[in-house]
């Protein structure tokens, strides 16, 4: 079974590096990191991820717009996108599963195990 392909878009270099490392070492994932929001769309087209972890507030791009652009791409429209953001608090959402602009999110600081759990639930690798 092939590894799950995760695209991680976050301008926080250290977080992206550490989270990618964790997912790779503990979650049977192949992680592609993109720190520049403006390059995320191209990276997604090329990498063809199973799931995209997308920061919302980045200096050169807005995650919400990026998500819309990705969903408009024929090759990416079925790719699961989840926001990874410091904009919302976990307890602001009542612990329930809420969405931002129709897409699910994980509130920073999120336990990397919770990210893995999310990937387990939402990514089914065939073949």
């Amino acid at each position: 079974m092939r590894k799950r392909r995760i695209l991680l878009v976050d301008d926080e270099v250290a977080i992206a590096r550490a989270l990618a490392m964790y997912l790779t070492e503990n979650g049977d994932c192949e992680v592609c990191v993109e720190n520049a929001g403006s390059a995320a769309l191209a990276a997604a087209r090329q990498f063809r991820p199973d799931l995209i972890l997308l920061d919302i507030v980045m200096p050169d791009a807005d995650g919400g717009t990026l998500a819309a652009q990705m969903k408009a791409e024929p090759v990416l429209k079925h790719t699961h996108i989840v926001f990874l953001t410091a904009l919302v608090s976990r307890n602001a959402t009542g612990g329930g599963s809420k969405t931002i602009g129709g897409l699910p999110f994980l509130a920073k600081p999120v336990d990397p195990d919770a990210v893995l759990e999310y990937i387990d639930q939402h990514v089914v690798v065939r073949g």
Binding site: E12, A14, I15, A18, L19, M21, Y22, E25, A86, K108, P109, V110, D111, P112, D113
Partner: peptide, 9 residues
């Protein structure tokens, strides 16, 4: 978030 991920690693 950095501290949390780092600690887990």
């Amino acid at each position: 978030m950095m501290i949390l991920v780092g600690t887990k690693i």
